[in-house]
Design a protein around this nucleic acid. Structure first.
Lengths: 109, 109
DNA sequence: TCTATTAATCGTAATATTACAATAAATATA
DNA sequence: TATATTTATTGTAATATTACGATTAATAGA
């Protein structure tokens, strides 16, 4: 147990859950907001900005990178991160479809 | 360790993360989609519909209820669940603000 | 080459999540 | 009251996540 049974759900449902999981930690939310705010590649000051230890930030960045939401470019000894806008848009489509489901105005119970 | 440091993040960041966490499991996504699809209170057939054990479904429903995204009304021996549309709209506002951040079209790195 | 700087990886402890069997609670009906 | 039906709760095992110290890797510059 303790293992999510992905096989009984649709690809779409699993995809929504994966994106949502990425946003399910405030550090990752903060990282993404900071990248959007600066509107540029952020080279190195994420650790001071967020306030968690360097390995922890690195771990969160890795998750976001694996999902494709950010990209990292090596610049000398530092790595510069920014939003991957193409993939961000794809994610938005998936998540918006889910969030914008609407109910007909029908009384219930 | 293993404990999210919520105190170093803003209320907004924590709120986004809490909502996202709720959507971070495909069973909860599936439950919500089903409630939207039927557009009615669902009395009892969620266990067969989703395909997880009854206590597991009950646990997922509890999480969604605690966040306020669904409500449950007791009807005899069964409980009928439906989307809490008011709270769903509030959630949508919060999540949309986050997802719809946009970058100026600026090259990066 | 040596040193400094910065990010990634490894290892690990603490906590959280997921899933379900067993059981309890609640209520309708015989 | 007794029984059937349905959902919630409890307990617990398996797995995942979070956080960080220690270390490694990579590269710039002396």
């Amino acid at each position: 147990m303790g293992l999510t049974k992905t096989e009984i759900f649709t690809d779409k449902q699993n995809q929504i859950a994966l994106y949502a999981k990425a946003f399910g930690h405030p550090a990752r939310v903060a990282i993404l907001q900071y990248l959007f705010k600066l509107n540029a590649c952020v080279c190195g000051d994420l650790v001071e900005e967020i306030g968690l230890a360097q390995p922890t930030i690195s771990q969160h960045l890795k998750e976001l990178k694996q999902l494709g939401l950010i990209k990292g470019n090596v610049e000398g000894t530092s790595v510069c991160y920014c939003i991957d806008t193409d993939n961000w848009e794809k994610m938005k489509t998936v998540m918006s479809d889910f969030l914008n489901q609407d109910l007909a105005p029908k009384e219930c119970c």
